[in-house]
Amino acid sequence: MPPEGTSAETGADGHYRALERLYASAPVNEKFRSKLEIVGEGLSRLTFAVTPDVFHAAGAAHGTIYFKMLDDAAFYAANTLATDTFLLTTSFNLHFTKPVKEGEVVAEGKWVSGRRRVMVAESRLVDHEGDEIGRGTGTFMRSRIPLSSLPGYAS
């Protein structure tokens, strides 16, 4: 057992758990309740519930929900490969394939290419029936912000 005040999390697993804490600490996630799980290098999974408070006027989830979850899933999949700095989204393309009215939705992120300065990752949204409801591809650039300087990451 590690000494009190220290963590047994090291290496890749420690980085993944720190990214999960970083995600959970973001104030925007108070408005969009969701949970991040890093499932391996270049892979992420977000779960969230679509409820009426995120509907547009026609009674289905607003596109902001699709964008946020797709961007977050792709972003964190890419950031698994950047252990020193926080990434920034530089572009994101989004395709809506099906409206969703309620239930749990899963966003799956997967790193595609790049490791040095710019990375590309893709993501998809799957509803509670197993249907794909959206898909996206993002480009992410390393920032000058050290991950270790961010309170959620460093916890």
Rank of each mutant, 00 (worst) to 15 (best):
G109E: 03
R45M: 07
A121Q: 06
A73D: 11
V100P: 12
D131I: 03
L147F: 03
H56V: 05
D72L: 00
E122T: 01
R45Q: 10
A26C: 10
W111A: 08
L125T: 03
T6A: 13
S123P: 00
G40R: 05
Y153C: 03
S148I: 12
A18V: 01
D13T: 15
R115P: 00
P52I: 09
N79Y: 02
A74H: 08
L88R: 02
H128L: 03
K68D: 05
L94T: 05
P151Y: 02
T6F: 13
S123F: 00
T137Q: 14
L36H: 10
R21T: 06
E41I: 07
K101R: 14
G152A: 10
F92E: 01
D71T: 02
L43V: 10
H95W: 05
P151L: 09
R135V: 02
V28K: 08
F67W: 13
L125A: 06
K110G: 05
V120S: 02
D131G: 10
T97V: 02
G136W: 00
L81A: 12
V54D: 04
A78C: 07
T47H: 08
L150R: 14
Y16T: 02
E41N: 11
A24E: 12
V126E: 07
G5K: 07
L125P: 05
K110M: 10
V50Q: 02
T64I: 08
R21I: 06
T51S: 09
R116E: 13
F140W: 02
P52K: 10
G152K: 11
L19W: 01
S113Q: 15
T137R: 13
F32M: 14
R33G: 11
F75I: 01
S113H: 13
T89K: 04
S143P: 06
T6L: 13
V120E: 05
A12S: 11
T80G: 00
Y66E: 06
A121N: 07
A74F: 01
A8K: 15
V50S: 01
L87M: 10
V39I: 14
S149L: 00
W111N: 06
L150I: 15
T90I: 15
V100Q: 09
S7E: 11
N29Y: 05
Y23P: 04
G42M: 02
R21V: 08
S7A: 08
A24D: 09
N93V: 04
T137N: 08
P27Q: 14
A60E: 04
D53Y: 15
T83I: 06
V120N: 07
G138W: 00
A60N: 14
V106A: 08
V118P: 02
E30Y: 07
Y23N: 02
S148G: 05
T47N: 09
R115S: 10
G114S: 06
S91C: 01
H15Q: 10
G59A: 09
G136F: 00
Y76C: 00
S7F: 06
F48Y: 13
G136P: 00
A12K: 12
G152W: 08
F140A: 01
M119S: 13
E104W: 04
H128A: 15
D127P: 12
T85I: 08
M1K: 11
V126M: 09
S113W: 11
R33P: 15
